[in-house]
Design a protein around this nucleic acid. Structure first.
Lengths: 203, 203, 203, 203
DNA sequence: GATGAATGAGGCTTCATTCAT
DNA sequence: GATGAATGAAGCCTCATTCAT
């Protein structure tokens, strides 16, 4: 007679990832230990390693999980309607605004995910870090996407993309450090008004 | 048998701190080892600990050294002339611009210091991190100073301070991650034009 | 590659404690090393620390084990019949004699336990020693018990208790130092005849 | 211009030994460190080792110093008059009593020396201890002397010597552990009355 | 699927000792 | 005589990982 309510194999794995995101998001890859995580999950050292054969392997799984959850939130209401209006090659400014706002809002909705991202991104600056490549690719991708979005709305989309990303990242990090003590979205809205091009006449 | 003397006593300590800043700036506090640092410095594990009794103690020394070098660069050309013109209680906008530009320029002049700051700041998000308090105090201080500088130039100086700091931090981090592959100062100038209030009439 | 199983889980722990008592009894807490003990037990450093998380923790376990074994030997044949005869509040002199004799005999039966006690008791004189409190409490307790036992048989039970304990400890230490080269029990019997009050008339 | 008031070389050495006796008497040979001692003496690690080339060497010096001071106290008033009265080969009982009393009194007069003796004697039980031989020889010597003293006054002087030494050691250790909280000499007098043969008729 | 026991490597730190100055 | 700097060895402990059960 089992009384484990969490005997579902897949759910177990998911539970571990949940806790892992929380802990790694707080202490980083080098700062957390398998034992610590196992304890929080109510299992033994080796029990955890059954699900994720190595620490590095676990990190990869965490990153994948992050992407999965990330993808689940943002695009739903924005991406699909992205190209429905406006110029030939780009997005309408209002769409861009919505998208960026959604990105920022996601931080507030899922602070653990945001913390994980912030902490690992800095830690992974060192080329020897197991997540270095991941964040390298990811940043390039995001910059490209942002630039694409902004194309047609400003003279130097590449540069605008950098500034946009910088502002988002910077604000998010402050917000995380402050434990959510200020209104991140309002702050972003104010910043967006300055950074993003004013609405064009026909918008 | 190693030559025992690299002579100058103070220089030795300084040399260790130099290397420490480089290494900790790359791998973080949890990611570097005393041995690694000692090796780079051409000494043994215990030899290094003669100068800095513990790893945590070394971190404190690193932070202090960072502040020392930091103070040596920025204010020289700006802070002294800070209050010579403009309104009674604040700084002239042009002075603010110079100061912020100097802060950004410092990153380019001393990338190792900037990297150290960026990496530790993220790692220290966890309250249990030995540098947590340091960065907590430091961010509060910087935000206050920025807000003070901007007082009189915009409606919500506190908010503007956040945005300014966010932009600087965000751009610097991108620049560090990109290994200096773009012109940080130019990028900042562009951002400053958008973020900072336009020059007043009498400026 | 070593065979992984010495099977019985509890027996393993007990085996470690056995060896620990032997080694600590010989070299003291400061004089023995975890490695030394681990080697004797046929395990690695860390393997041993799996069972006893720290050196100090191991010492506590040793002390507890000592008490357990101690309790198992003495009282069986004496304590139960303690109050069956003699005065209302105390023990009969003959019972006291038996008990003390049993205590001394225990040294001969379990020299390792006695050695452990003697060595640690002296080492623990320093208040900073991790076993200081233990021996402080223990000596107070024993003195009280002895005094209680002797109450009614001599003018100053407290003083007699001190002398009795001093004689036992002194003789035991000589015997341990001499590697059991003289007859401890005979020696004690001779001493007891001098120290303890002569049998009363009605005894 | 020297302002060292303790520049006398011999006095310096003596000062170190003083502190060494105190510290080793508290923590034992294994429990103290050269650094700790040097610090208390107001010198550096290496400075101390100039006077005593090694830790073991220092221990030997400590033991020698102990003997020197020991010899300086006891015999003055007793040993010289030892053989002036009584039987042909031995000492008068009253002389024995005085001598033993003087030995005990010495503990009260110089508790640090007594502590050193007690702590090292137990620690040195292990044959590998650097002071093992010293205490082995010393105990044999004392037992012989005691037995010689008691010859003619009791049936089994060897056994009486053991008991006498045991009682002294036992009481002294209790007294040290109790930080001198009871009257050691009074306690010994009481014990002596029981242990030592009653004064013979012609005494 | 998971545990309990263990390993081997490595980490921080301490310590006695050395040696140039 | 003594210091300051450094070494090399060792000490305790942690950690990722392995494996029999």
């Amino acid at each position: 007679m089992r009384k484990r309510s969490r005997s579902d194999p897949e759910e177990r794995r998911s539970h571990i990832l949940d806790e892992a995101i929380r802990i790694v998001g707080r202490h980083g890859y080098h700062g957390f230990t398998i034992q610590q995580l196992a304890q929080v999950c109510g299992m033994t050292n080796g029990g955890l390693l059954y699900h994720f054969p190595s620490k590095e392997n676990l990190l990869v799984a965490i990153l994948e999980e992050r992407d999965r959850r990330d993808a689940a939130i943002v695009p739903q209401d924005v991406d699909l309607s992205a190209r429905d209006c406006g110029s030939d090659s780009g997005y309408a400014l209002s769409t861009v605004r919505s998208l960026l706002r959604a990105i920022v809002a996601r931080t507030v909705a899922e602070p653990e995910l945001a913390r994980l991202h912030a902490v690992l991104q800095s830690e992974a600056m060192a080329p020897s870090h197991p997540a270095h490549g991941y964040f390298e690719r990811r940043e390039a991708m995001v910059l490209e996407e942002f630039a694409a979005m902004l194309t047609g709305h400003c003279r130097d989309p590449r540069s605008a993309a950098r500034q946009t990303l910088a502002m988002i990242d910077g604000l998010v990090q402050q917000w995380l450090r402050a434990n959510g003590a200020f209104d991140l979205i309002a702050q972003w809205d104010a910043a967006a008004a300055a950074i993003l091009p004013a609405s064009s006449a026909h918008d």
